[in-house]
């Protein structure tokens, strides 16, 4: 059955294209941009088009275009790890809480309350900052901080599913709880989970680059969009592109992931729709 959709497939197609390009840069960054980290303190910062630097250079004389290409890796790898890791943690805790209820549910509930009591970015700044920072520490901290929303999501979905008559029927037929979980409940919450993982990739990208911007994520000198913005903040007069380009890249990538997430959710939700 075809119905007219509010958003055509153009937006998700463009988003997918953009993400594939970003993924290519992340995977083969050293091939596409071999001179990303070459410094030239002699030239220092120059504007767009000077000396063959299409987008100019930063204060260390690094080429903005190549640096931005190389930055795709830390912009994708960390957020994807955060989103998947937090969903694994969230799905595990959420299923336990939703299916077993009781004390376990209460414990998991308090855990989510505690972590959600402060905005993730703020808590990440504090924890990552005090623990000494670094990209991977920050990724780990964000994974933990992102998990409560996944826990709540999965728990609510599981609770909603377990009251369905077909779950009652499966129980009465003598099907084991583990099998009911995997075969009857899990597939029906996949759309929610997939969409939320994608949305979390976007949020994690924003959060991680924010931390890098504050100097708590990627180490100094590493190719990272958030870092580039922080370094380029003082160069607005000399080469505005040093901060505008990575800024636009972050916004574009996060928007693409969000659009794709919404689209995937609509599609999957329709295939598993009850009616």
């Amino acid at each position: 059955m075809r119905t007219t959709r509010s958003r055509g497939p153009l937006a998700p197609a463009l988003s997918a294209l953009l993400l594939v390009a970003a993924a290519l840069c992340a995977a083969a960054g050293t091939l596409i941009a071999p001179h990303a980290l070459d410094q030239n303190l002699y030239t220092g910062v120059v504007g767009a088009g000077v000396d063959g630097h299409l987008l100019g250079t930063d204060q260390l004389g690094r080429d903005i275009l190549q640096l931005s290409v190389a930055g795709a890796r830390s912009a994708l790898v960390g957020p994807v790890l955060v989103a998947c890791g937090s969903m694994l943690l969230g799905a595990w805790l959420g299923m336990i809480a939703g299916y077993h209820g009781g004390v376990l549910d209460a414990l998991v509930g308090r855990y989510t309350d505690l972590v959600l009591a402060l905005p993730a970015v703020l808590l990440a700044v504090v924890v990552a900052g005090l623990l000494g920072g670094g990209y991977w520490v920050t990724v780990a901290v964000l994974t933990v901080l992102f998990s409560p929303s996944d826990v709540r999501l999965v728990r609510a979905a599981v609770l909603e599913q377990t009251t369905r008559p077909y779950i009652d029927s499966a129980r009465l037929l003598g099907i084991r709880p583990g099998r009911i979980m995997i075969r009857h409940i899990l597939p029906n919450i996949v759309p929610t989970v997939v969409a939320n993982v994608l949305l979390n990739v976007a949020f994690a990208l924003v959060a991680l680059s924010s931390l890098s911007y504050l100097g708590l994520g990627a180490p100094p000198g590493a190719p990272d969009w958030g870092r580039q913005l922080a370094d380029g903040r003082d160069l607005l007069g000399d080469n505005p592109l040093a901060s505008i380009v990575p800024g636009v890249l972050i916004i574009l990538t996060a928007t693409a992931v969000n659009l794709l997430g919404d689209w995937v959710f609509e599609r999957l939700d329709r295939t598993v729709a009850v009616r």
Partner: peptide, 22 residues
Amino acid sequence: SVVGISAPGFAVGLILLYVFAV
């Protein structure tokens, strides 16, 4: 609103700074 949700404050801030202030 999707763009707004996706855009980190510092990136928007820097772009606004460049366009409206600089």
